[in-house]
Design a protein around this nucleic acid. Structure first.
Length: 559
DNA sequence: CGAGGAAAATTC
DNA sequence: GAATTTTCCTCG
């Protein structure tokens, strides 16, 4: 059957192959290209693509336009795939909650069954998933078991699957860069909450490899969206402290996006019955259905499965607001990957988010940049935020010229902003793109883990856009696979350099994030973060060169 | 708004 | 009970 071996953290060996006859076949890099004649596919390998950073002024279109706002991070869980899913039906990218590879051998008849089972409870699904399917329930327990809390960088639960290096086996397939890299990722990243099967044609469009039938991808349960963001937060701190920030005098900027009292992003949702967890985490964001309207919050959740561990304080939690700030400024910098609800026709649908399968974190397969890998992507298919990228490639280099101070106190939603991250020198961090000076490009920034082995969006922290007279650098917030990303223009006239004086750090409550379905990291003592910068440099042929640079670790992000 | 500090609440 | 996390208060 399907086998996914994770030997140690360093070595990950995937052997997932099954033919129609049920015989195991070996899967090699070359096998990454789905064969129409074969009925097996690897689903949800990799992460949803983020939208490429396009030159300022150029509106982005793409996968990331869905508007879910959730705390960033977890790219792996963010189901997200190139918009339009031209590669096939969109499967919730979060098809799998845990790292795994699902191989499915689907026959036409089988598809029907599955289709029938779609929408049914898990039980029903399991029935349909027989041979050739590795079915991994999303049960939280599953992840917990593997969870290895590692305070510092949230390697924690994920450490088991380990470092990217472990995925070497798949890497080769992507060595061919621009050619197949994106396609492969797109094809194998089937799960995308954004595009629900319902919206996507099935079978896949002609010419495209058949993908897993919607049924397999669909989770009977609430979509990621519902479960996370939309869910109201469980009341916590019954006692003296009022639950949510609502009653408090201070509100985070996030509130701007939130209609209600709840904080903008993570605050509890007002709607009763919603899931207790709803946090702004990445999961939730990604799953947030695109609603017309800027604020991708979710105020209501259908998710009933409420973790026992909940915070009593806030009745509901506000969803992360991707565009809390419309970012009036820098209109021209159209962010490619903006996940504005309105922009994402394929945004996550409530009905669509598949969560019944454990997803295979992208890092599993592409954790670390490999020497031979070319960080060139199609503009329409940018690498996920947790995808390792080099800081330098050829003549280009993204460099953090001035690093932030080693210490910064992040603010909670319940507090006012604590200002932008500063540099040790007293100024602000400075990032520069070397080797390119042709036209403006967007510099993306998000808060990542301090984990040296696996840099990815931090589950407990989000970048926070600072505005005001003290801020000279224009910026705008976008949400990419549930991670808040700040976009700052790098202009030729400024030597493609930018002073990051507009980025603060928002601390999400541990309880909110940890309760998130699928979340395995723990927040306690996980207080080190890094500012991660990315830039997508336009290349001939509609491709972009993606570079990434991270700052030194910043600790005590929360006080 | 941006900080710094401290009390209150949680966790371990 | 100690360590941490969160929230509340104050001040400039």
């Amino acid at each position: 059957m399907t086998t996914a071996n994770c030997s140690g953290n360093e070595e990950l060996d995937f052997r997932l192959i099954f033919g129609e006859d049920g015989q195991q076949q070996s899967l090699g890099p070359a096998d990454l290209e789905p064969d129409d004649n074969s009925s097996f596919y690897i689903v949800n390998v990799g992460q949803p693509q983020t939208v490429p950073n396009q030159p300022i002024g150029v509106p982005r279109h793409g996968p990331q336009t869905h508007a879910p706002l959730v705390p960033a991070h977890r790219a792996y869980d963010s189901a997200y795939e190139p918009q339009g899913s031209k590669y096939g039906p969109s499967v919730g990218r979060r098809a799998f909650e845990c790292p795994s590879i699902q191989i499915t051998s689907i026959s036409p008849s089988c598809l029907q069954d599955m289709e029938a089972g779609r929408g049914a409870g898990r039980e029903g699904e399991e029935q349909h998933l027989s041979r050739g399917h590795l079915y991994l329930p999303l049960d939280v327990a599953y992840r917990d078991a593997s969870l290895s809390p590692s305070p510092c960088s949230s390697l924690s639960s994920r450490s088991w699957f380990s470092d990217a290096s472990s995925c070497g086996s798949f890497s080769p397939a992507f060595d061919d860069v621009e050619t197949e890299l994106n396609e492969a990722a797109a094809r194998f990243t089937l799960g995308s909450p954004l595009a629900s099967p319902a919206d996507e044609p099935w079978p896949p469009q002609p010419g495209l490899p058949p993908l897993r039938p919607p049924a397999l991808l669909h989770s009977p349960r609430a979509s990621v969206t519902d479960e996370n963001w939309l869910s109201p937060r469980p009341p916590s701190r019954p006692s003296s402290r009022p639950a949510s920030p609502c009653g408090k005098r201070r509100h985070s900027s996030a509130e701007l996006c939130h209609p209600g009292p709840a904080s903008p992003r993570l605050s509890p949702a007002p709607t009763p019955g919603a899931s207790p967890r709803g946090s702004v985490t990445e999961d939730s964001w990604a799953g947030y259905p695109s609603v017309a309207g800027p604020p991708p919050f979710h105020c209501c959740s259908s998710e009933l499965d409420v973790p026992s561990k909940t915070r009593k304080t806030s009745p509901a939690r506000p969803a992360l607001c991707s565009q809390a700030d419309p970012a009036p400024e820098d209109p021209g910098s159209g962010s490619p990957s903006r996940e504005t609800p309105a922009e994402d026709p394929h945004g996550p649908k409530k009905d669509g988010p598949p969560e019944q399968f454990l997803s295979v974190p992208s890092h599993l397969t592409w954790s670390k940049p490999k020497p031979g890998h070319t960080p060139i992507f199609r503009a329409s298919s940018l690498p996920p935020l947790d995808w390792p990228l080099p800081s330098q490639f050829g003549q280009y280099e993204l460099q953090v010229e001035v690093h932030p101070k080693a210490h910064h106190r992040a603010h909670y939603e319940t507090e006012g902003s604590r200002g932008a991250v500063k540099a040790a020198s007293g100024g602000h961090p400075v990032v520069k793109l070397i080797g390119y000076n042709e036209k403006p490009v967007n510099l993306q920034m998000f808060i990542g883990t301090a984990d040296d082995r696996y840099l990815r969006p931090h589950a407990f922290y989000q970048v926070h856009r600072i505005t005001g007279k003290t801020v000279a650098t224009p910026s705008q917030e976008i949400i990419i696979t549930s991670t808040k990303v700040l976009e700052i223009p790098l202009l030729p006239e400024n030597n493609m350099s930018a002073s990051i004086d507009c980025a603060g750090i928002l601390k999400l409550r541990n309880s909110d994030i940890e309760l998130r379905k699928g979340e395995t990291d723990i927040g306690r003592k996980n207080t080190r973060v890094r500012a991660v910068f990315r830039v997508h440099v336009p290349q001939p042929g509609g491709k972009v060169l993606s570079l990434q640079a991270a700052s030194i670790p910043v600790s005590r992000s929360a006080c």
